[in-house]
Every structure is written in C-alpha cells, then in structure tokens.
Amino acid sequence: MQEYERLRTAARQYPNLQGLRMIPFGVFILAIAPRDLGSNWLGGPGDCTFTLPMLLAAGGLWFLIGRYYKNTFGKVTPQTSPGRQVLESTGLGVGLVAVIVIENLWYRAWPGLPVSPIGLALAGLYLFLGVRDRRWYYTVFGGAMGIISLLPLFLGTTVGDPIFGTFGLVFSLVYGVGLVLTGLLDHFRLVRMLRPLDGGSYAGSE
C-alpha cells in the first residue's frame, strides 16, 4: 500500500520537484546581490542594463531545464486547471525574482520599518509548502527567511538604518542560496522517487 502511495505522491509532486529549474533564478539573485551595497558594475538599484539580460537568461535556462526534465523523466499533466498550471509554473520563477526587486524598492521607500513584509510573506509561503508537501528543507528555508525578515526588529533597528545598511545584501544572499539549495534537494528527491530505465520491482510481472 505504501509503495502505491509513493507512486501517487511522486506523480502528483513531479512538476513541483523539478528543482534544477529554480537554480538559475537563485544564481541570478546571488549575482545581483552586490547591487544592494550601492552603485557598482551592476549599475546600482533601478539600473536594468545588466540585470534585465541576466533575468532573461535565467528565464531561458528555466525553459531549457524544463526540456531536460521532459526528455529524461517524461511529462505529466497535473489535475489542476490549465490556468492554474501556467500561474504556478511562471509565477513561481518570475514572481519570486520580482520579490527581490520589490523588497529593494520597499525598504528604500519605507526605511523606518523594523521588519521586512515581503520577506515575512515569503517565509510564510515556504513554511506552508514545507508542511503541505512534507519537504523539511522548505520549512528550514521558510524559517531562515523569517529570521532574516525579523532581524532588524531583534537588533532594535530598521531595514533602512545605515548601521543595518546591508540588509538587502543579507536578504538576497539567504534568498539566493536558499533557492539553489532547495532546488538541488527537490531534484535529488525526484531522482530518488523515480527508477532507472533498466527494469524495477514490477519488471517481469504479467
């Protein structure tokens, strides 16, 4: 019975476990992290000369890695409606990248805030996904994002305080590393759930 439940879980979670697709976005966020320190070769906040092509490249890789999954592990159409499918697949990648930009603008517009609202929203999202799909590493990631988002409050400062001027950098680093690590762990989980193409436990049964 447990084996059949494993099959159902693997089939249901297959689209969400294509973790390598999130790595380009994680790397993108890590690459633009120094921007939060001020103007540098990335052009500083608001300058899209380098960041937009990098984001497009990450999006391109997202599609290419999707083809790798399709060619290596096959294709599944989930039971969710096509509209929700598009929203989930594009929203997860592009939406999460947009968060870092919004975060950056937010704490510059309201520097007096002692917490990061976007960071807390992300923390809540990952905690929810971790509990719903029993992915412990999402729970850890959500917890880390929550701590980072509340860090200015713990330190008795604000997200815009010059003493805490590197908030954006710390946030981006944790977020980028988290996306890369959770992506890798998702991928490993998927590989463990599926079988090699040389005959498995049902081979030979008629």
Binding site: A11, F73, G74, K75, P78, R195, P196, Y202
Partner: peptide
C-alpha cells in the same frame, strides 16, 4: 493505475521511470 490516478495524464517515459518497467 495508481500513478495515473494522481494526474490528468502522463507520457510513456514517465510511466516507465515511475514503475521501473521495461
């Protein structure tokens, strides 16, 4: 059937990978 019951459809390769059948 168990794998298919969790999705709308799946291709041959995915069914091969999930069941391990030749």
């Amino acid at each position: 059937l168990s794998a298919l019951s969790a999705v709308k459809s799946a291709d041959f390769l995915f069914l091969q990978r999930i069941t391990g059948l030749t």
